[in-house]
């Protein structure tokens, strides 16, 4: 018996099941992450010799004007990127989920399948698709806006310093709205019918039922959607890189942590790359994500448990 293996021979079968997966995971995911955190404390001279320098990289990143300006810019842009997702993607996802979960709605499956479709495609491909659609050269969006009487509002949104980041955020929202929709939809389906029935029998309107019964019950899911959005946003890179390149133009107005990390690590144009500085940026990204996850786990989830059945 496996449970009584105290005096039994060495449990080779456990090793057999565990070792291959654990080995790959530890050596290619856990170790590199720890090694990156460690590398952030080092510096490299011209000959490639590494030496320990404590927190100097972080001091440079956070306070030295040449480095800190791009860093704070990227962090602030990334925060805006996240805020747009929270304010647009998740409410739309919630609304679609509520509509889809209404009982006996025809074609519900088809709507779900079709609305989720863009989520399946590569971020890179989506970036190019929208770059073409918003291009003033092709003029397809411009004509469309003229057709619905809003033509004068058209601008080269992706090219303007003031609008590029918001436009890219909305493209990302357009692509990923399917994820909150699906997850919230699933949690709406899990609400016991008796609760809804009781509320209806008590004479609540559909809106009251949603606000007083359904919303509190799906709050844990909304919390989970938020943290998934947070991690994905502060780890994003592809969309900006595909549409704007590693320089995240115009004038770094679309630079986020992912593109900053890429440029710091590999270098770009005049700036040469630095392994140790790249590791420092990655460490800061790790800390940001860790703080987000910690807030979620300790604060949000604990408070939400009150509402759970």
């Amino acid at each position: 018996m496996t449970t009584s293996n105290h005096k039994a021979p060495f449990p080779w079968h456990i090793l057999f099941f565990l070792a291959p997966g654990l080995l790959i995971y530890v050596s290619i995911s856990v170790y590199p992450l720890l090694d990156t955190l460690w590398l952030g404390f080092f510096e490299e001279d011209e000959s490639g010799q590494r030496f320990f320098s404590g927190l100097k990289n972080y001091q440079t990143l956070l306070f030295d004007a040449v480095w800190s300006e791009p860093f704070w810019n990227a962090l602030w842009n990334n925060t805006k990127f996240f805020i747009v997702h929270m304010l647009v993607q998740n409410p739309i996802g919630l609304m679609l989920a509520v509509l889809l979960s209404s009982p006996r709605l025809q074609w519900s499956n088809s709507y779900r399948t079709l609305i989720f479709m863009p989520t399946m495609l590569s971020v890179v491909i989506i970036g190019f698709v929208w770059q073409l659609l918003l291009s003033p050269i092709w003029g397809i969006s411009e004509n469309f806006l003229y057709d619905i009487g809003l033509g004068e509002y058209f601008d080269a949104w992706l090219g303007n310093e003031g609008t590029a980041l918001t436009t890219l955020s909305l493209i990302s929202v357009w692509q990923f709205v399917g994820i909150p929709m699906m997850l919230i939809y699933a949690s709406l389906l899990n609400i016991p019918d008796e609760l809804i029935d009781a509320s209806v029998v008590d004479g609540s309107s559909a809106w009251q039922t949603f606000w007083n019964i359904k919303l509190p019950l799906i709050l844990p899911t909304i919390g989970m959607v938020s943290i998934l959005t947070f991690v994905a946003n502060f780890n994003a890179f592809e969309l900006i890189y595909a549409v704007k390149g590693a320089l995240a133009g115009p004038n770094f107005s679309t630079d986020i942590m992912g593109t900053l990390f890429y440029r710091t690590f590999f270098g770009f144009q005049l700036q040469s790359g630095s392994i140790t500085m790249g590791a420092a940026v990655a460490t800061l990204m790790f800390l940001i994500i860790l703080i987000g996850v910690a807030i979620y786990l300790f604060l949000v989830q604990r408070r939400m448990q009150r509402f759970q059945l």
Binding site: Y25, P32, T36, G278, A279, V293
Partner: peptide, 23 residues
């Protein structure tokens, strides 16, 4: 080991890119 794997769900493997390329 279970917690080690669970952490990988939330922490993106990308953050270790510097060392992965080294490796």
């Amino acid at each position: 080991i279970a917690i080690l794997f669970a952490m990988g769900i939330m922490i993106p493997i990308r953050l270790g890119t510097v060392s992965i390329l080294n490796l």
